[in-house]
């Protein structure tokens, strides 16, 4: 479904050339759950933005579902971002003036859906992320985990075939992070292709496949023999709201 050959991304910073990506070859099949790992500055986001059609490579060819992305018009690229892929960012990237409902609805507006369809699909997406009761809230009235769930609902609302997530748990505490990972795993089970960026092995191990990026090159690409189950881990982690303190301590020991 995704096929990259010899992808390079070079930033010219005055005299210096920064090779954010330096010859990446990569194939990702439908229904895969892939994690891209690497140190900060290794080119993870750059790679993600290119496969997500937000950015164009300096060199190399990218084929998405059989069509050569470099030959697509900006209109066609917008359509891909609208229907085919959904994006989740580390910093949520919600529009601050709008309620959760309006944020989730926005891709449907660009897709040209009518009022009725929009209402239905938005409600459904919010339900999937268990935020139906927060529909009328603005981002600054919600916790980080809730904001990220709104962002995921927005990524899901047009029923995309691939979901891209760039360090989606980066700004969250580990327990909330696990809840978000559980959500991605659920989406994956329901048939979505997921490409995620992270620099934490704990998070990466929820995927089926881990790609190791270093200095803009892929230096490792392995299957995970037994992925972790985020849902179970989440339940195992102490929740002080429900457990008493001594139970919580014994759970951790």
């Amino acid at each position: 479904m995704i096929s990259l050959k010899g992808i390079r991304k070079i930033y010219q910073m005055g005299e210096i050339e920064v090779k954010a990506l330096d010859g990446v070859d990569l194939e990702i099949e439908e229904h895969e759950f892939v994690c891209i790992m690497g140190a900060s500055g290794s080119g993870k986001s750059t790679l993600m933005n290119i496969i997500g059609c937000l950015d164009r490579p300096s060199e190399g060819s990218y084929t998405l579902d059989g069509s050569d992305v470099s030959s697509l018009t900006s209109r066609e690229l917008a359509d891909i971002r609208n229907r085919k892929v959904g994006f989740v960012f580390q910093t949520f990237n919600l529009l601050p003036r709008m309620t959760a409902h309006r944020n989730v609805e926005l891709p449907l507006i660009y897709a040209g859906n009518n009022d009725k369809e929009r209402k239905k699909k938005t409600a459904l997406a919010l339900e999937k992320v268990e935020l139906s009761d927060r529909a009328k809230h603005k981002p600054n009235e919600m916790s980080g985990g809730q904001r990220q769930r709104v962002a995921i609902a927005r990524a899901l609302v047009n029923d995309p075939s691939i979901i891209f997530a760039d360090e989606p748990t980066g700004n969250l505490d580990s327990r909330t992070g696990l809840a978000i990972m559980a959500l991605f795993q659920k989406l994956h089970r329901e048939g979505a292709t997921i490409v995620m960026v992270t620099h934490e092995m704990d998070i990466a191990l929820h995927a089926q496949r881990i790609i190791h990026l270093k200095d803009g090159k892929i230096i490792g690409d392995e299957r995970v023999k037994k992925s972790r189950d985020a849902e179970a881990e989440f339940l195992a982690v102490a929740d002080l709201d429900h457990d008493n303190l001594s139970d919580a301590i014994s759970k951790h020991e």
Binding site: L54, S74, R81, F87, N93, L94, L95, A111, R154, N158
Partner: peptide, 16 residues
């Protein structure tokens, strides 16, 4: 600018 970026990331065309 960021808002414009977000809108484009979720499917807004230049025309939108």
């Amino acid at each position: 600018t960021r808002e414009i970026g977000i809108r484009m990331a979720i499917g807004a065309t230049s025309r939108d």
